[in-house]
């Protein structure tokens, strides 16, 4: 069982060394990578996915439990501990959702009972993440963008046994971010989000700031930020509700902006 992965510093686009000599990710960590477009976020998680050994443009080195990645990780895809979901990742299958998840569970689980449990748990998980419930009989191709994201994350978390999950800007489509993070925390894995979303960033244990291809800073979410989490999640949820209301043809009323009320903010200060 993997306990930690480390990223030893390389350099950015202008050959300036990464600011953090050794980044450590421990099992159970939820991490965000932030930075402007073009700042090197995707490059950093590609380094992790490739188990970079000084052989990528950044010159970074990735260690697993303090050692270079075992040959089997690169050699045998079934041993690869990393799953990656990007904006371009999608499902191609047109099977019904239930059949599809069974086809996947079949190669991972030994008994029919284990398979059935894994499929049910994946569906429950996905349905917690998205506001639009997924029925086992619906076809994969009929799923909305939000349902696809939710199912991708749920499947990678529940059925795959990879302990490291990389998510490259997958948060935009309609998934419930606060609940996603809370649910992911129940699984002892390393989740690394490349994200522009303030809620995901603040709900992470720490964030890595990228600039010009270089790791510019490592910022643990500090106590003040942690105390702001409920307020930020409240705002985020409020915006999600507004979006849903407007999509359903409803009117918006002042009471729908409850999360903005000063009383609430004051209570978080206390």
């Amino acid at each position: 069982m993997i306990e930690r992965i480390s990223v030893l510093a390389g350099r950015g686009r202008r050959s300036e060394a990464d600011a953090v000599p050794c980044l450590e990710f421990r099992m159970g960590d939820v991490v965000s990578i932030v930075g402007q477009t073009g700042s090197g976020k995707t490059t950093l998680i590609n380094d992790i996915e490739m188990f970079a050994a000084g052989d990528t443009p950044s010159g970074r080195r990735v260690l697993i439990d303090g050692e270079p990645a075992p040959a089997a990780f690169r050699d045998d895809p079934a041993c690869n501990p990393v799953a990656m979901i990007t904006q371009h990742t999608t499902f191609l299958s047109d099977l019904p959702v239930g059949d599809f998840l069974h086809a996947h569970a079949r190669i991972r689980k030994a008994t029919p009972e284990e398979m059935a449990t894994a499929v049910a748990r994946t569906l429950d998980f996905a349905n917690e993440l998205t506001g639009e419930p997924i029925a086992p009989a619906s076809r994969m191709t009929e799923l909305s963008g939000g349902q696809v994201r939710a199912l991708l994350i749920a499947d990678a978390t529940v059925i795959c046994h990879t302990p490291i999950i990389l998510l490259d800007e997958v948060e935009n489509a309609g998934i419930h971010r606060g609940r996603t993070l809370a649910l992911l925390r129940q699984h002892r894995k390393i989740f690394i989000f490349v994200t522009h979303d303030p809620n995901i960033t603040l709900l992470s244990d720490y964030r890595i700031v990228m600039k010009e291809g270089r790791i510019a800073a490592l910022l643990p979410t500090d106590e003040i930020e942690r105390s702001l989490r409920p307020a930020v999640t409240g705002l985020d949820d409020m915006m999600s509700r507004l979006r849903d209301q407007l999509r359903c043809g409803q009117r918006v009323r002042p009471s729908d902006l409850d999360a903005l009320r000063p009383a609430q903010l004051r209570s978080f200060r206390e």
Partner: peptide, 13 residues
């Protein structure tokens, strides 16, 4: 990079 982890694993199997 384009397909779900699930399809990648089934393809491999």
């Amino acid at each position: 990079d384009r397909v779900s982890q699930a399809e990648r694993e089934v393809f491999r199997a």
